[in-house]
């Protein structure tokens, strides 16, 4: 908790280390597609790779990241307290018990959603930038104030999409908003890097022609694919216990998130879980309904 030469509020990492965090937003427009699950998994995945990572809940009033991360009983101060100057950043940040590189920044449960003032958010993000490699922002659903604030400062956006018409349409809308209303757009900087994360994917249903395929969604949205997360029972199990799904090595979804994180930091990984598993003759003919 020292203050390294000239730095403000050095409270994470070694003294003298220099960080300039990249800001990533997980956004979708539509609700219920897996933004919070994905934010928790991506943040934990980055931390597993040794990156100092903080994941911030922007969903004021409907806080849930704390539950998914399993730290709900450790929340004392929140994002709004810090913005309003009622608490210091290091009082509000919750260090993950499973990984030293991972911090959770919970949001407020009670205050009104307009409490996230853009200049306040910017001040907090600037302070976090000095202390982390990655700042992962979990956006609320919709295209209202909270969602716009969450994506405004992003350097990179992960568009969480289900292979389903309303989700794809809303993703397209959000991609348009990133291109026109983000800080990078408003200041004529390089555009926000957008990545497609296709979640709740069922290869079986795609094969039966009942679900849009990865190729379909890629073609429609025309943004690069970061990963495909299979529909998996382990996601609910992980959320039941407050464990980011990447901490479950047996989980197909967890492995798919680990791959997505590897691609995010520039590694080449083959796309898994996009081909149906081999099935027995018996199941091919009399397969589950």
């Amino acid at each position: 908790m020292g203050t390294a030469g000239g730095r403000r509020h050095r409270f994470v990492g070694e003294e003298g280390e220099v960080y300039l965090a990249k800001i990533i937003v997980l956004t979708s427009g539509k609700g219920g597609v897996g933004k919070t699950t994905s934010a928790a998994a991506i943040a934990a995945g980055l931390a597993l790779r040794g990156k100092r990572t903080v994941v911030i809940d922007f969903d004021v009033g409907l806080r849930n990241l704390d539950l998914i991360m399993g730290c709900e009983r450790r929340v004392v101060f929140d994002f709004i307290n810090v913005i309003n100057g009622d608490a210091k950043l290091n009082q509000a940040l919750i260090k993950d018990k499973r990984n030293d590189n991972l911090y959770v920044f919970p949001t407020s449960q009670t205050r009104d959603k307009d409490a996230l003032k853009r200049d306040g958010v910017e001040r907090v993000l600037d302070e976090l930038k000095d202390n982390f490699d990655y700042i992962v922002c979990d956006s609320p659903a919709g295209i209202e104030h909270g969602a716009i604030t969450a994506l405004y400062f992003a350097d990179s956006a992960i568009i969480v999409t289900n292979p389903e018409v309303s989700s794809v349409r809303d993703s397209d809308r959000i991609i348009g908003i990133l291109a026109s209303k983000s800080r990078r757009a408003e200041h004529n900087l390089d555009p926000v890097e957008v990545h497609l994360l296709l979640t709740r994917y069922s290869t079986e249903r795609v094969k039966r022609g009942e679900m849009l395929s990865v190729e379909d969604v890629k073609e429609i949205l025309s943004i690069p694919l970061l990963g495909v997360i299979p529909e998996s029972e382990s996601v609910l199990r992980a959320s039941n216990t407050g464990t980011p799904v990447v901490f479950e090595p047996e989980s197909p979804a967890g492995r798919a998130y680990v791959d997505a994180v590897a691609r995010f930091v520039g590694e080449q990984r083959e796309m898994r879980f996009v081909q149906p598993e081999r099935r027995s003759i018996f199941r091919t003919f009399f397969g589950r309904a």
Binding site: R169, D172, G209, E210, L212, S213, I220
Partner: peptide
């Protein structure tokens, strides 16, 4: 069965318009 194809066609049309 091929409702996915219908979904794709509908999305292409509506998104062309909205964009």
């Amino acid at each position: 069965r091929n409702s996915a194809g219908i979904a794709k066609d509908r999305l292409k049309i509506v998104l062309a318009h909205e964009r």
